[in-house]
């Protein structure tokens, strides 16, 4: 070997954040394709669950709530997809990369912390988004949901959900010591969200005091915005409230990640 091939050379061009994100996301996508169990759960469960919800929702007393079976089920299904395909699987991904020292190794490179976390999140976020689109089309075709009355609320709800939940996943991953532990750490927030964010039970059917507490949960604003997007019955006040809650959760999660995220295993 000659010294010219091994010697140092000033990099002619610096990498860009976009290039680094692309490289990280591509590797993560390859990995996702190779962990079949995770992939199967992330892809199939959110698409199958609505079929099981259906009978519950059919039996609901929706009179006076302005809701239809479709406008209850579709936002719930999308919320469920965010919980399973994005949140739960990302908690495992972050924990796995940390335990394999991948995060620590990446931090020795040029990628910024946020890029490392975002790169790992991109494939899951893409799967979540794809599911939302598939679910929407399926509902429109089979349940006669119709086009959303306020599409901008739907887009807003989706975007906020796809930003908040990866951040919450990173926070959750910090509370575990292993990939298995990460799955357990993800359960509380998943259960609370399923029960209290209007996924199974529309908040409109809950007692007022409980409903106003449930409005503060991180998944609630997403469901509220999506549902409001389809019914068109969401007031400006409620819209702002939902957006505010979602932004607040994102801010809290980002702060928590910056402050407490663990980049390497506890020893």
């Amino acid at each position: 070997m000659s010294t010219t091939t091994v010697g140092p050379g000033r990099a002619p061009v610096r990498t860009t954040a976009a290039a680094r994100l692309r490289a990280l996301a591509r590797a993560e996508l390859t990995l996702l394709g190779r962990t079949k169990a995770t992939l199967a759960t992330a892809v199939s469960v959110p698409l199958l669950m609505p079929l099981m919800f259906r009978s519950t929702v059919d039996g609901m007393d929706l009179k006076g709530t302005g809701l239809t079976v479709g406008s209850v089920l579709l936002p719930s299904s999308i919320g469920f997809s965010l919980l399973v395909a994005v949140y739960s699987s990302l908690v495992s991904v972050y924990a796995a990369r940390r335990e394999e020292l991948v995060l620590k190794r990446l931090r020795t490179g040029e990628s910024r912390d946020a890029e490392i976390l975002a790169g790992a999140a991109l494939p899951s976020v893409a799967i979540g988004l794809a599911q939302c689109l598939v679910l929407t089309v399926a509902y429109v075709v089979t349940l006669d949901v119709g086009a959303p009355a306020s599409p901008h609320l739907v887009v807003l709800g989706l975007l906020l959900g796809l930003v908040t939940w990866p951040a919450l996943a990173a926070v959750t991953a910090s509370f575990s010591r292993s990939v298995e532990g990460a799955q357990v750490a993800a359960l509380p927030l998943m259960m609370v969200s399923l029960l209290g964010s209007g996924t199974f039970i529309p908040l409109e059917t809950l007692p007022d005091r409980l409903a106003s507490f449930c409005e503060l949960l991180p998944l609630t604003p997403v469901i509220t915005l999506l549902r409001g997007g389809w019914t068109g019955h969401l007031s400006a006040h409620d819209t702002l409230g939902a957006v505010g809650t979602a932004v607040a959760w994102t801010a809290i999660a980002v702060f928590a990640v910056r402050r407490w995220f663990r980049w390497e295993p506890r020893r």
């Binding site: 050379g9 000033r10 990099a11 002619p12 061009v13 610096r14 990498t15 290039a19 680094r20 692309r22 490289a23 990280l24 591509r26 590797a27 390859t30 990446l106 490179g109 040029e110 990628s111």
Partner: peptide, 13 residues
């Protein structure tokens, strides 16, 4: 090779 490709995408020059 995939590992190197990932790292190369994050490395200047």
């Amino acid at each position: 090779a995939e590992t190197l490709r990932m790292w190369a995408g994050c490395t200047s020059g």
